[in-house]
Computed example of a mutant assay.
Amino acid sequence: MTDQPFAHVDRTASEAAVRALLRGLGQNPDAPELRDTPARVAEFWAERLAGYGIDLSAELKPLPGDLAPVPVILERIPFVSTCEHHLAPFEGHATIGYLPGAGGTVGLSKLVRVVQAYAWRLQVQERMAQQIAEALQTYLRPAAWGVQLLAVHTCMGHRGVKTPDVPVRTTLLGGPWEANPPVPFRI
Rank of each mutant, 00 (worst) to 15 (best):
residue 1 M to Y: 12
residue 1 M to H: 14
residue 2 T to H: 14
residue 3 D to M: 10
residue 5 P to Y: 03
residue 8 H to Y: 06
residue 9 V to A: 10
residue 13 A to P: 15
residue 17 A to L: 12
residue 18 V to P: 03
residue 20 A to H: 06
residue 24 G to E: 12
residue 33 E to P: 11
residue 34 L to W: 05
residue 35 R to M: 10
residue 44 F to Q: 12
residue 44 F to C: 12
residue 46 A to Y: 11
residue 47 E to T: 05
residue 48 R to V: 10
residue 48 R to H: 13
residue 49 L to P: 14
residue 50 A to P: 14
residue 53 G to C: 12
residue 58 A to I: 03
residue 59 E to N: 05
residue 60 L to C: 06
residue 61 K to R: 15
residue 63 L to Q: 15
residue 64 P to W: 02
residue 68 A to Y: 09
residue 70 V to K: 15
residue 75 E to G: 09
residue 76 R to P: 10
residue 78 P to C: 08
residue 80 V to M: 13
residue 83 C to S: 04
residue 83 C to I: 01
residue 86 H to A: 02
residue 86 H to N: 02
residue 87 L to R: 03
residue 88 A to N: 02
residue 88 A to V: 07
residue 89 P to K: 10
residue 89 P to A: 10
residue 95 T to I: 05
residue 95 T to G: 14
residue 97 G to V: 06
residue 97 G to H: 07
residue 98 Y to M: 02
residue 99 L to Y: 01
residue 104 G to Q: 04
residue 104 G to A: 08
residue 104 G to D: 07
residue 110 K to D: 09
residue 111 L to A: 07
residue 112 V to Y: 06
residue 113 R to M: 04
residue 117 A to N: 11
residue 118 Y to G: 08
residue 124 V to I: 12
residue 127 R to F: 04
residue 132 I to T: 01
residue 132 I to E: 07
residue 136 L to N: 04
residue 140 L to T: 01
residue 140 L to S: 03
residue 146 G to K: 00
residue 147 V to L: 06
residue 150 L to V: 13
residue 152 V to R: 15
residue 153 H to R: 14
residue 159 R to M: 00
residue 162 K to Q: 05
residue 162 K to G: 00
residue 163 T to G: 01
residue 165 D to V: 06
residue 166 V to Q: 12
residue 166 V to K: 11
residue 169 R to Q: 13
residue 172 L to C: 03
residue 173 L to K: 00
residue 174 G to L: 02
residue 177 W to Q: 00
residue 178 E to H: 13
residue 180 N to G: 05
residue 183 V to S: 11
residue 185 F to P: 00
residue 187 I to M: 11
